[in-house]
Design a protein around this nucleic acid. Structure first.
Length: 935
RNA sequence: GGGCGGUUAGCUCAGCGGUAGAGCAUUCGCUUCACACGCGAAGGGUCGUAGGUUCAAAUCCUAUACCGCCCA
């Protein structure tokens, strides 16, 4: 176990003479720079300008719960959002990242109630008004910590536009929504079976319930038939057997149901049977909802305590008395035998089972896995009860969304979620929007003493009915319930932008938004409801792209949860690896909406990468600093500008000089560019185009992988190494290439790793922060195929020389003499200095005596046979290569001699195969000669 | 019961029709004047299984096994 806070992670500046103030520390220390930038971005927010002429690019934050702490899901969401926002801002859009929070009805009320309980006070002791004061007080003091935590992530949000679902404007939006829905006939009151949470004393929507399979029992009960001679069905004469998992509800039974096609029971339909432990008889009915295979084929129907039974009851006109109260206890209703009255539901089950057993009515008890519903907040099993609630008709809105999806108004990324989205909308059910809570938007509905309903006038929705002069003669009482939390967050993309004032500047400029980024787990909860509200209230899709990412799982692949205690705190990851490293990991891990299994190695990779980038910049600054005093002005204006550009890196009094883009176009035309310069510029162009395309396709993972590989494997490992000789002599065009390429890379990486890139960009002498600079454009003029081919030969020669040194057991310092032959040998010789410097060898014209040779494409590298090489082993390896060459040649020739291939494959693929035959043929030939020496 | 995703090197994962990749781990050599959070060299995979389509399949189709998720 590593202590994340050990001081050995901390850079120690001024340790060596080299580390004077003008030079970067040897190791990147995130802690030294992150707080400054985070504070800057929090205190001087990226304000989006609603009056600018730029094209808008808007993303609204998935509002975190005001009660919450930052968890990895938030960190992932907001990293992806910020990456897109920073990219688009640099690319010239009026980018708006709108932050805010959700009041989170149940969660918040539960938190505050728990605190009160610790003081021995219940919310009822306080009363509604004082309780709400308490909640607001709590919110002001300790709520909303999450946004402070979020700002550590370095998000470039517009904090001047921060919103809360219960602030004034958003509350008004919620009221307008309800009033409109009511008067248009979409919002209605209805008696339905609802999911009741006996712990929090409120109804819950389907989505707020976790289904869990638990071990339970299935009981087979015997109900006596009124006609004792009736033929046996599934038991003895005079009885019917039924199966149930909830024997405590038998007192509310209204019928026994069998399947209409079930031959076992056909003759019993219409008969009556007696409920055990009572004197009450219920009819035997036939209904399609019964599964013949389930249990013993017959079920008791208890409309008040089961959703399916409720529907059966409706079809058959059954009464629906209830025997369980709101606290989950059996009622004191006369239906319930006295001995069971008032018992808690699970205690009641035991007591009823005991009584049934004693009475001989319980025939069988067996293990049965039952799916039960748990309140996702309180974890208590929900109780289906009948209650009058507010509902919204969803079908008409779902149809609008479906039509919109059909038209292509919205794109889902990854695309496969479009089907999930559609399927859910096609099977939509009405939405229970009332909650028996106090914390939330109280429903703007009033009742008079006769129970008549009053809802504000659509012309004046803001006026309470009890303030309305029209109703002055009435004694109105307001509905005590509040709306479901999602009845406000469904408005989030436009309520935050001023709706219902559709003329407001923000609404006109920034709505509809462009992208919505969130986890697929709230596709139904939130995304679909925003879609419906968007079409229903604003007439358009609230966003054009829905980007769904996977769930962040623990290292074992399990969902993180408080109860499991397997949560990983992102703040600790920030402490241990740095924020840039963490953002790197999130981006790197996000591919195609796949779930993400936590892997600390990805964070290490990010930390190492940030350090690599830091050191590349450190190197560049050291070289630029050394070179500067010796840069002689040639009098040429072009040179002068480039010298100033180099100087700008070190002296911020020079300020902005040439922009790196202009430096690139100026330097690319210079005839004295080295091969390495031409190569890296060509690669830079290709990578810029590639990463930009990947970002435009919302493939953030692919983009960071592209940039990581380019920065480390090409820029650091090859370009910097190859540039060292030219830099050592202060060559202007290479100095400029180095600086401009580095700056270009910092820009490309900035959306992903904003801290380290901003810091380094500043260290290079820029006063304006990197975030407000332009996204680099790919420039085809930099493309240089010849340079790529030649540099590849150089790399092959270097790799071969290094390999030889290793085979010969030489230490890196040993200057091995090597000779290079082959078609591309002239290129290698032209760049002898570079090869010698990188591979630490000496190129010689020819070598006497026995040699060890490595054959690569275009070049063969030979070295004197000395040192500790195991010849037999070496020959073995070369023979293996020979076999590999043969295999490749045969494969390619096979294709070329295949008529179908030659006739149908694209020309360039055929060319490629021909080239391979030639290349491998040549290598094979050279290798054969090499091996001949040893025969 | 319906739907979706996954199965690729020891581990965690990219790649998703045209020569099997990364990080970590492993072996060997290096304090080489940016970086040991580093540099260099090397070993390691018949891409779950079985069919099919195609000139060409890790990649497309069908079936199947196992793992996971969603809906009922």
């Amino acid at each position: 176990m590593t202590d994340p806070h050990t001081p050995d992670q901390i850079a120690t500046p001024d340790q060596t003479p080299e580390n004077d103030a003008s030079v970067l520390a040897k190791q990147f220390d995130p802690k030294a720079i992150e707080p400054g930038w985070a504070a800057k971005w929090r205190n001087e927010p990226f304000r989006a300008d609603a009056t600018s002429g730029k094209e808008p690019f808007t993303i609204v934050i998935p509002p975190p719960n005001v009660t919450g702490n930052l968890h990895l899901g938030h960190a992932l969401d907001n990293t992806l959002i910020d990456t897109l926002i920073r990219y688009k801002r640099m690319a010239g859009f009026e980018a708006l990242y709108l932050p805010g929070m959700d009041h989170a009805g149940i969660s918040t009320q539960v938190v505050v109630e728990r605190q009160l309980r610790e003081q021995g006070v219940s919310r009822h002791d306080l009363g509604r008004e004082r309780f709400l004061d308490q909640v607001w007080e709590w919110k002001a003091e300790s709520g909303g910590m999450i946004l402070e935590q979020l700002s550590r992530l370095g998000v470039s949000a517009d904090w001047t536009r921060e919103r809360f679902t219960m602030d004034e404007g958003l509350s008004r939006a919620v009221r307008h929504q309800f009033v409109k829905l009511y008067h248009e006939g979409f919002a209605y009151r209805g008696e339905r079976i609802v999911n009741w949470d006996p712990a929090s004393q409120t109804t819950l929507s389907e989505l707020e319930i976790d289904r869990e399979v638990r071990k339970g029992k299935m009981y087979t009960l015997s109900y006596r038939l009124r006609d004792p001679d009736a033929a046996a069905s599934n038991g003895e004469a005079g009885e019917i057997r039924i199966a149930t998992v909830r024997p405590e509800t038998i007192f509310a039974d209204q019928a026994i149901a069998v399947h209409p096609q079930d031959p076992r029971f056909a003759h019993l339909v219409g008969q009556e049977a007696r409920i055990p432990l009572t004197d009450r008889y219920v009819p035997i009915i036939a209904d399609e909802a019964v599964e013949m295979e389930f249990g013993v084929g017959a079920l008791k129907i208890t409309p008040a305590h089961d959703p399916t039974d409720f529907e059966v009851g409706e079809r058959h006109g059954l009464a629906r008395p209830s025997v369980i109260d709101l606290h989950g206890n059996l009622t004191r209703d006369e239906l319930v035998p006295a001995e069971f009255q008032g018992l808690e539901r699970f205690a009641a089950r035991k007591a009823v089972v005991k009584a049934l057993t004693e009475g001989g009515d319980l025939l069988e008890e067996k293990d049965h896995d039952t799916a039960i519903g748990l309140s996702e907040r309180t974890k208590v099993p929900v109780e289906p009860i009948i209650s009058e609630q507010w509902y919204v008709k969803m079908k008409p809105f779902a149809e609008q969304v479906l039509a919109g999806l059909e038209r292509g108004d919205m794109q889902l990324v990854p695309e496969r979620y479009a089907k999930v989205n559609r399927d859910w909308l096609e099977n939509i059910r009405d939405w229970n929007i009332s909650r028996q809570l106090w914390w939330g938007h109280q429903i703007p509905a009033w009742y008079d003493e006769q129970g008549n309903l009053y809802v504000p006038d659509p012309e004046n929705p803001d006026l309470d009915c009890d303030q309305d002069p029209h109703y002055a003669h009435l004694n109105l009482r307001r509905d005590p319930d509040v709306f479901d939390t999602w009845f406000s967050s469904n408005l989030w993309p436009f309520s935050t932008l001023g709706w219902p004032d559709t003329d407001s500047e923000d609404f006109r400029k920034f709505y509809p938004t462009q992208v919505l980024v969130t986890g697929y787990d709230i596709l139904f909860f939130w995304v679909a409801r925003m879609q419906m509200a968007g079409y229903g209230l604003t007439g358009q899709a609230p966003f054009s792209t829905v980007m769904l990412h996977g769930l962040y799982l623990d290292a074992k692949g399990q969902k993180m949860s408080k109860s499991k205690g397997n949560g990983i705190d992102p703040l600790e990851l920030f402490d241990q690896y740095g924020v840039d490293a963490s953002r790197f990991a999130f981006s790197f891990l996000s591919t195609g909406g796949q779930d993400i299994k936590h892997d600390p190695r990805r964070f290490e990779q990010g930390r190492n990468f940030a350090n690599k980038l830091w050191n590349a910049a450190r190197f560049a600054m050291l070289r630029l600093g050394e070179a500067l005093p010796n840069l002689q002005t040639t009098g040429s204006e072009a040179d002068e500008a480039l010298i100033q550009y180099v100087q700008g890196a070190l002296d911020d009094s020079v300020g902005e000089t040439l922009r790196s883009r202009d430096a690139l176009s100026a330097v690319r035309a210079r005839p004295d560019l080295t091969l390495a310069d031409r190569w890296i510029l060509s690669r830079l162009n290709a990578v810029t185009a590639e990463a930009t395309a990947q970002l435009d396709a919302f493939d953030i993972g692919a983009a960071i992988r592209t940039l990581y590989t380019f920065t480390w494997d090409e820029f650091c490992d090859w370009y910097i190494e190859a540039a060292k000789p030219a830099l050592a002599e202060g060559k202007l065009s290479t100095l400029v290439t180095l600086k401009a390429t580095l700056e270009h890379i910092l820009k490309l990486l900035h959306p992903f790793m904003p801290f380290v890139t901003s810091e380094l960009y500043g260290a290079l002498g820029h006063r304006r922060q990197l975030a407000v600079h332009s996204w680099p454009a790919a420039d085809e003029a930099l493309h240089d195929a010849d340079a790529t081919r030649a540099f590849d030969a150089l790399r092959a020669a270097v790799a071969a020389a290094r390999s030889l040194k290793s085979e010969l057991g030489l230490s890196p310092q040993d200057r091995l003499n090597v000779a290079v032959e082959g078609d591309l040998a002239p290129t290698v010789h032209e760049n002898a200095r570079v090869v010698e410097s990188i591979a630490r060898v000496k190129l010689t014209g020819d070598l006497d005596g026995r040699t060890l040779s490595l054959v690569e494409q275009g070049v063969t590298v030979r070295a004197p046979l000395e040192g500790t090489v195991d010849i037999a082993d070496w020959i073995g390896k070369q023979k293996k290569r020979l076999v590999e060459f043969d295999k490749q040649i045969k494969q390619a020739q096979g294709k070329l001699s295949n008529e179908g291939f030659v006739a149908r494959a694209p020309a360039e693929v055929i060319e490629e195969e021909k080239r391979r035959v030639a290349d491998f043929g040549a290598q094979r030939e050279r290798l054969t000669q090499v091996l001949a020496q040893f025969e």
